[in-house]
Design a protein around this nucleic acid. Sequence first.
DNA 1: TTGTAGGCGTTATCAA
DNA 2: TTGATAACGCCTACAA
Lengths: 346, 346
Amino acid sequence: MKRKITLKQIARELDVSISTVSKALKDSKEISKDTRQKIQAFAKLYNYRPNNIALSLKNRKTKTIGVIIPEIVHHFFAKVISGIEQVANARGYNVIIGLSNESFDKEVINIETLVNGSIDGFIMSVAKETLQQQDYHHLIETINQGIPIVMFDRVVNDILCDKIIVDDTEGAKAAVNRLIESGCKRILLLTTKDYVNVGKLRTLGYIEALHEHKIEADPQLIIKAKDTHSSDKEIDSLEREIEKTFEKNNDIDGVFAVNELYAVTAMKVARKKGIKIPEDLQVVSFSDGVLSKHSFPSLTTVDQHGTEIGETAANLLIDKLDEIEDEESFTTKIIKTSLIERDSTK
Amino acid sequence: MKRKITLKQIARELDVSISTVSKALKDSKEISKDTRQKIQAFAKLYNYRPNNIALSLKNRKTKTIGVIIPEIVHHFFAKVISGIEQVANARGYNVIIGLSNESFDKEVINIETLVNGSIDGFIMSVAKETLQQQDYHHLIETINQGIPIVMFDRVVNDILCDKIIVDDTEGAKAAVNRLIESGCKRILLLTTKDYVNVGKLRTLGYIEALHEHKIEADPQLIIKAKDTHSSDKEIDSLEREIEKTFEKNNDIDGVFAVNELYAVTAMKVARKKGIKIPEDLQVVSFSDGVLSKHSFPSLTTVDQHGTEIGETAANLLIDKLDEIEDEESFTTKIIKTSLIERDSTK
DNA sequence: TTGTAGGCGTTATCAA
DNA sequence: TTGATAACGCCTACAA
């Protein structure tokens, strides 16, 4: 077991000074060709690589970015990470991940432990609990310390930083329009509680689409799932609610769900009740998932382009870190969604 | 924008030496109660936190572990990461992730950039390409440098290190047994090429189960998908192969798939052909996914317990790093699978 | 052309 | 009780 070799060791072995070695390895012309070659050959032989930690300490840059997300067992977030990682790696950065599990405390702890030198900047999607409590001191403090944050998806409007958002409202509107255009008149909305920004925005899109087509929104047709984690229990309870709503409103001919799990749950209810999709009921959902593609029938969905979001976020952050971008200007980028037509619509 | 405060600055402000500050913040009795309190109060006020990078350099420990996996947009790997992250955080470690995208080169690069001081140890699942080429020099070198590796799922037997494996063969056997017990006689196997270890082992389990029940394995009923990434195209081609096989063998009454995507693909073919599940055809798959739970019919699957694998791997690695475990002994832990019964079996 | 010295932030040892 | 010094590994301005 041989430890990694250091400049010091090379210097000792070759009987030169540390700085000579350092310069020689940078191919500096200060050093004679002879010694340069000798040192380079030796370094190569022993597979010398500069120690990242020492570099970080010296340069006050770690070349790593911290990614804080609510959960990772989730197709959308996994895609975003994948996009971040790709860009980060290509631009010489590493990626540390921290999971908040939607908990405020875990989010704070994660950020605090990384802030102390481990990372140069953050990319994050805010935990539901944080949004609910509206306590953003940890975010404000890191920004005040000169550590840039790029928020995506779950964004806090009050905080001044770069943001990548999905055009949730537009996407939802397009989805609902799609339903209306193929004949739906009574469209059930499956959404989240309002404090989840994206749920709220998608709800807004639903309302707007109806409005544009002079259809009045019926409160009876809006179900706000009381979920926090999409756990089995919560989905079961949603299922019962959907069932009840179908029973009370047997004229429902469309469903718009803010995520694919809700959509699949609706389809399950429909199947139980013998409602044919897409003949009697059409379904569209927001999503970025495998479920949509492989459910039966496959789901028409609003694609959020998770990978692209991740890539954009990483580029934005690294531009700032590498000082390609001005430190004091903040942009909000909107990633356009697109509708993927599958078999749950006519 | 106030930069993080350092010991030096505190020392200057309070007109004491750096080492006094350092000791006082550790509540060392060497320092008088008075100065201790003064310094602690000041540090608290300015929210002092030791710089991780400096600590890493000093201690030659980074308190972070590198996780190298083939992909992250994959339920199983996401679960494993989730398990790793949980344990790591609880034990004071951070997690850096690197994605190989199943590519040998990316795996090598990822490991090499992290080896230079950024991490204390690795948890990894080997890329398919690496397994195919059987070139493990990067792994051997890191181990030789005293950096421990814990492998999971896709494991290299020839390399001496800790390993966490799923009892693939047993799990597959249990799955196939389940099919046989509920009456299946002609069971189609959907698997991968042999160089993917887990595919091979699961295939073995299939063979063993048949053998135990004195059913002869029919090569016609074994489809080895020529996939590397489960891309759409590859799945389409698998679909056609399954279709052909069904046409040639109309007595198939069971399917065992080594992953849920293959299983869902088989169910799709069955649906097209009007084959009823589970009445005419029963399906079981290996998996750790959302698909199984929400497909129609929901799939009976072999649960791999991804989170537990991640937790076990992290504990094993950290035990070694924190020297709770002997550095020179290597264990291979087997995580038992369990069968989750759903609607695709009788 | 090569080497010395100081510093990045911290801790530990030893001296005052 | 406090402080100076060296060290972790690297880089660089400056001196020789």
